[in-house]
Write a protein that binds this DNA or RNA. Structure first.
Lengths: 208, 208
DNA sequence: CGCTAACCTAGAACAAGTTTCAGAGTTGAT
DNA sequence: ATCAACTCTGAAACTTGTTCTAGGTTAGCG
């Protein structure tokens, strides 16, 4: 696999603002990636094919996304943004924060079930990512955190305890997805796990 | 990566009992793998090198372990067994089940910290594994469950609720390890996450 | 308009996981 | 002991991610 690259030339945050044509290229690439992933999952996303589908030279593809993992994590960022928008429209109606978070995650889960191969590609990339992709993975994590905090519908800033709970929920979310994607857990199982971990929210204070 | 293989010829569970020489080969392979992994992690485990180090032809290596992922997951099985043995010797002393489980996991975590590269190789393989490795990954999961249940020190069989909690703890364990390995979480952070999730054990009954 | 730096393209080349195959070497049953 | 069936070896080939090169294109700027 051999991922050595530095942060990409293009993606460096406050760098070049990308011309219109460049923005279009980037979009074509992400679109082609999602399309290929939606068919065969991780393995079906082949860099040469992505390049061809998006009408871009292989070298250019690598200039925009320094590795296949970067590419798929960027795809996940893209999809997550979209999902956050969708979820925001119909906030969950549950009584408790725990219930609302569980409902939100299950909604996201159902969305992923509609494109299981795409989910496979994105989640596998996310957990396989090494340090060279940390900034991007971290961004995904922050976005996920935002979604969960949104669902909790807090009046004020979250307490440290609540933040811990949210982190654990994220852990469970990712790992449960993986067990589902690799066929080792059923959808029902994932539901139970999510509901179980959500109980950590609004939990009566206990020793540390 | 391209993993297509059927269940390996050799590893099929109730199959051939492996002659002594074969057992020795298998052991040499696993030893070489752990050694290479302990240096550079996942990337440093190169199939050609493993074959050479363990004095086995490349084709033979693939007969024993149908892919690099299978090889690393088998290595994890091996290490886990070892660790379970070690942990069993000095059972944790905490008051609560939650405390004992957290202590046990932290002990395991400290062991992994001693060989971070090896941990990296094994954990990355584990989460990257696709369906073709499910049986082996599942075995790892069962072993982990056993370790946790041991730490809980139950008198009787675990309740369904407890089993759910254990599954969530495992999710958190794996995912927290990954965030640590990829440098996105500190050791202290992992500790907090483990302690947080362990609160799910002996939790007063609540709705559903 | 014309220049220059940055960007893009096509294609070859390289690296590492995986497959294949012909020819020994072992083994187990008769 | 002998034969058939497996197993192991060594080496080449194949696949796909990644890097490199040489030459054409574009964008901003004087």
């Amino acid at each position: 696999m051999v991922i050595k690259s530095e942060a990409g030339t293009v993606r460096t945050s406050p760098a070049s603002p990308l011309t219109e044509r460049q923005e279009a290229r980037r979009r074509r690439i992400l679109h082609a990636t999602a399309q290929l992933a939606s068919r065969g999952g991780f393995d079906a996303v082949q860099m040469r094919e992505v390049a061809e589908s998006s009408q871009v030279a292989l070298g250019t593809l690598y200039r925009y996304f320094p590795s296949k993992i970067h590419l798929l994590v960027a795809t996940m960022q893209d999809q997550l943004e979209h999902m956050h928008g969708t979820l925001r429209k119909k906030p969950p109606a549950g009584e408790t924060a725990a219930g609302r978070v569980a409902e939100t995650l299950m909604r996201a889960f159902r969305a992923l079930q509609r494109e299981p191969h795409l989910a496979d590609a994105m989640v596998r990339a996310l957990t396989f990512a090494d340090r060279s992709v940390s900034p991007e993975v971290d961004q995904v994590s922050r976005q996920t955190t935002a979604i969960i905090l949104d669902a909790m519908g807090l009046e004020e800033d979250p307490t440290p305890d609540q933040l811990s709970a949210v982190r654990v929920i994220e852990h469970t979310w990712h790992s449960a997805l993986i067990t589902w994607l690799s066929g080792r857990a059923s959808i029902a199982q994932v539901k139970i796990d999510i509901e179980t971990v959500c109980r950590l929210i609004d939990l009566p204070d206990e020793r540390r």
